[in-house]
Amino acid sequence: MVSRVLILLYALVSYALFTVSFLYALGFVGNYVVPSSIDKSIDKLIDVGSPAHLSEAIVVNLLLMSLFAIQHSVMARPAFKQWSAKFLPAACQRSTYVLLSSLILLLLFWQWRPIPTPIWQTSGLAAWLLTGVHWLGWLIAFASTHMIDHFDLFGLRQAFLAWRGAEMPSQSFRTPLLYKIVRHPLMLGFLLAFWATPEMTAGHLLFALANTAYILIALRFEERDLIAEFGATYQQYRQRVPMLVPRLFMRRQTGDRRPVGESQ
């Protein structure tokens, strides 16, 4: 019982840290400055912070994003999960993934070097539209986690089942809501949030480009794992539904009622 309680507490702490990192990401990417009267130390955003030499900023920022990409991708692979299962309880694996991802994100926010050179600037209706798309992206990303299983995705469900002494049920395959029009709405939401901005700087562009490249590469590996797990069912899903860009007109098809969840 003690170990079960510890696993549950571990999951709750990991989820709390994810919540902090996600909320900070909203302000970081959107340049929403926290009033200095609250805490001056957290006025560190994608375009706000201490100036740095251009070459230093590019190298440091790319290293930070590479660290996140490597951790995020390596720990998501089935081979790593099998290896880590030798010394890490299955109920802790997702929470550990969430914990490390959140810590690296916070490190990225803390050590990010802004490059404020303007690329584009808009005002009026265009600025309002871009801001709207930006927040739509965050909404899509957050909503997508609930369309599959938010608490499973972030390790709470596994820990709660372990606390109850219950076994994890086998993963099924389904395509709820947005998953019927794009295979990866979570990643689509992130791309919209990263690119839609009324004021694009060189630093923000570097962030958007690097993360877009990572997402496109990572999805190839993720889909390979999904094909290995679900076989022809996922192959047929790939043929019907685009990866990131929804089709304007799609035939109504029946058949697949069994999910896809975003892998780690």
Rank of each mutant, 00 (worst) to 15 (best):
L191V: 12
D149H: 12
S14K: 00
L99S: 07
A90Y: 09
F230I: 04
L226K: 10
F249S: 13
Q264R: 11
F142T: 13
S3V: 01
A69I: 07
G231W: 05
T254S: 14
G27I: 03
W163H: 10
D225P: 07
V48Q: 02
S3N: 11
S37K: 10
A166P: 00
V98R: 03
I215T: 14
A57C: 10
E56Y: 13
P35Q: 11
A69V: 10
V34A: 05
F249G: 09
L54N: 05
G203T: 08
P246N: 10
L54V: 04
V60H: 02
G30V: 03
P169I: 06
I42G: 00
A76D: 08
L106W: 04
A127I: 09
A228S: 14
L153R: 05
S14R: 00
N61W: 08
F22W: 14
I140H: 00
S36R: 14
R94L: 01
L108R: 01
S3L: 06
P185G: 03
R183P: 10
S84L: 14
I42A: 02
L12D: 06
A208V: 07
L219N: 07
T201V: 06
P246G: 03
V74G: 08
P118W: 03
V74A: 12
M147N: 11
V74Q: 06
E262Q: 04
Q71H: 15
P78T: 10
I140L: 06
V260D: 03
T19M: 05
G165R: 08
M1A: 11
H184Q: 12
S144L: 05
Y237E: 02
V34E: 04
S36G: 15
G30E: 11
G165H: 10
L156S: 07
L161W: 11
W120Y: 13
W163K: 09
N61I: 09
F109I: 04
Q239M: 09
W138A: 15
S73L: 12
A210R: 10
G137D: 01
P198Y: 08
N31L: 05
C92A: 15
M168C: 06
V20W: 15
Q236I: 03
P185K: 00
E199K: 10
H146E: 06
P51C: 03
K180C: 06
V20A: 11
A90N: 14
L139S: 09
I115C: 08
Q121S: 03
D39W: 12
C92R: 03
T175S: 15
